[in-house]
Amino acid sequence: MKHDDKRWLDEPGNVRKIYVGLWIFGLLLALGDLVIHRHAEAGLDGDFAFYALYGFVACVLLVLAAKVLRRIVMRPEDYYDR
């Protein structure tokens, strides 16, 4: 098995292209709210880009909270074996 098999994804520049592409795609989706009339399911989700903002903020908060949780609950891998 060879170790030096460089792929397209191994190039940091290409990963950046995907990242930027994802932002463009996301912004286009958010702008889609201006074109497609979304019928609100629960009331406040009719606001412009509600789902986009909620998704982003929810995930950032999730990760930040999980980092705090890790400080409380993380133990060495053999904790229960000792």
């Binding site: 990242y19 795609f25 989700d45 880009a49 986009a52």
Partner: peptide, 18 residues
């Protein structure tokens, strides 16, 4: 409406991860 809102939710979750 459902497709758009779900795609927004998912793509922006992915953006948060990245």
């Amino acid at each position: 409406s459902h497709v758009l809102s779900q795609m927004q939710l998912l793509v922006f979750s992915a953006l948060a991860f990245s």
